[in-house]
Design a protein around this nucleic acid. Structure first.
Lengths: 342, 342
DNA sequence: ATTAGCACTCGTTTATGGGGAGTGCTAAAT
DNA sequence: ATTTAGCACTCCCCATAAACGAGTGCTAAT
């Protein structure tokens, strides 16, 4: 077992490394204000901490840095309750102070805020649409040849797609299509729209319209394209500015991940639905992330999961502050969402 | 003046450097298949080319590389008419073969295609909206408290924003607002909407509605937010993979530019409205771009400017192929746009 | 149990010296 | 008058070596 002092030393090492990104030696620890032991004592303890795999040397004779296991231990047992600085709290308050008009905006601003406060990269998975229902469908003709179809959900989401009007289709027929669609699909949860389209709308359309074939093809392509997961990034560049990433290839693979693995990340976030969760280094499944820590926190409404906030930083992350921030932020998001829904 | 042979040598140097990214010496040039002069002769000519500032040494005694001026000369005078490979042409053909439903999609796919074929980063400024007119305005109530306003343009663009219904505003009043808006704003060019809002709508609304204050504030915030310039990127990561960018700081500043200078780039592209244009190195105004070449080409419809295609690569760019590709692509875009408008 | 002392390790920096690719110049060849 | 061969010279690149210093592990003293 670890002694009280060893715990303290581990804490100092992690704290210091988080701040400086430099290995720290026994002497430097001993010189710290709130450490009263000699360098030799600390050396002994450090040897033991190393045996436990909690700290490492970068080479035979240089200071120690926390190992992955060390960070894990730190996060699990050594985190002191952190109270946010006045700046932090007021920044958050301000973001949520404006009247909420659009939930997407709030989510996006949260992402921006989080990345700005931490200098890491924030990723937010927007409100899930499992529960949202189709509110209204409309087709608007733009010219004799083209029209745009607009879908509105009860959460205020709007999706649209323009298309070419089948030759010879007239206004009355178009209207009929819209009426059928609204009649059969309004109020239906988005998830179930494609199903309903096939089971109910298909037949009706076939009976009542002349240009069934093309029209139905359009509808399918429009409604069956999977609802894109709404992923908001904040401070994409932040993480690459961290001194931890000096290696060109690491930098590149990290960048590639952020730019091109949106889908993967979204799926990852979708899996994290309960409370605060921290993945450190190789605990992450994505290889590009294995030098990073990834903190996720979900926000809810009426107890059901709505979305997930995440922060990507170096393993040398300010865990304490980050976790407090995210705790507060998700609470704010939760209540904002509730407010918005009234 | 430069002799025929010197021109040839310059061409070889540029061509070779474009391919290998390595300085090339007199011996290597002499050994090339289609060069019949001795190393010494070439050395003399190279000395002269250097005097003209067309090539440079990386240090006192290493091979030469093209200078910025050299690239400029190459592009202006040495470019051999390039015919695209079968793969290139068929890839382009394929992209434009599918039936066009949405212009945005085509533009986006063009960006993707261009970056894929070249391994550089493509940037496309979407169709301009100067000419587009407001087609229709609609307000849809989502619940007793919230509603969404939808704007549709005659090009099939849809913008939407949800908002909180002012307390006490009823359905009839809402309808009145919509009617006034459609009556006064339908058919008006987007550019002029904010003006009209103030000059015509404001008074009318004040007379006919109870909740003028809040409602008008909403309208203003919605319609006066500048139309975001539609900028499509393709292969954001490509340029960072180029061996030319070995320097961590260059990499970072380049990345930051791509991520955060969208506005600046958009403005830049907006300025380039005629034909094919190449900016090499420090000819670029953005500092992060000063190690890059930037090729722009605009596409039109009925002779008026619609948008601009651009490609960002190292100064050591495959100018010949790139310019041919972009020439073909903009033609395709132009005709696609014309088709689409019928 | 803690601490002072000391030899030792190893990364970092600086100096030194080939080796090699490529140049510039001069003199010979065409 | 061009073109080419020959050769000294330059400067990067790399390997080796030495001095330095931060930090360790161990032992002996407190």
């Amino acid at each position: 077992m670890l002694t009280e002092r060893q715990l303290r030393i581990l804490q100092v090492i992690v704290d210091d490394f988080i701040q400086t990104a430099q290995p720290i030696g026994s002497r430097a620890i001993s010189n710290k204000q709130d450490v009263a032991y000699s360098a030799a004592t600390i050396r002994n303890d450090m040897a033991e901490l190393e045996q436990f795999g909690l700290i490492e040397k970068t080479h035979t004779s240089s200071g120690r840095i926390p190992s992955e296991k060390g960070y894990r231990f730190y996060v699990d047992h050594l985190l002191t309750p952190f109270h946010l600085s006045r700046q932090d709290t007021s920044a958050i308050k301000q973001t949520f102070s404006t009247n909420i008009r659009q939930m997407e905006e709030v989510v996006q601003q949260s992402a921006a805020l989080l990345s700005e406060l931490t200098n890491y990269t924030s990723i937010i998975l927007g409100p899930e649409m499992l529960e949202t229902k189709l509110k209204h469908i409309q087709i608007l003709t733009l010219s004799d040849f083209s029209a745009v179809m607009i879908l509105v959900t009860d959460t205020g989401h709007v999706e649209h797609k323009s298309f070419r009007i089948p030759d010879g289709m007239d206004h009355a027929e178009m209207e009929k299509v819209v009426n059928i669609l609204n009649d059969r699909l309004a109020g239906v949860p988005l998830m179930m729209v494609p199903g309903r389209l096939k089971s109910e709308v298909q037949e009706l359309l076939k009976q009542h319209t002349v240009h069934f074939d093309t029209m139905f093809a359009y509808l399918r392509s429009f409604m069956e394209t999977e609802q894109p997961l709404k992923l908001y990034f904040g401070g994409k560049t932040n993480i690459l500015m961290q001194p931890d990433f000096q290696d060109l290839n690491k930098l590149r693979s990290l960048y590639t991940m952020i730019e091109e693995e949106g889908e993967t990340i979204a799926r990852l976030l979708k899996g994290e639905q309960n409370g605060l969760h921290v993945s450190i280094g190789t605990e992450n499944k994505l290889s590009a992330m294995q030098d990073c820590s990834f903190v996720t926190a979900s926000y809810t409404a009426d107890g059901i999961h709505m979305g997930t906030v995440a922060l990507l930083g170096p393993t040398r992350m300010e865990y304490s502050r980050v976790m407090s921030l995210m705790h507060v932020l998700t609470n704010k998001l939760t209540s904002a969402y509730q407010d918005w829904q009234k």
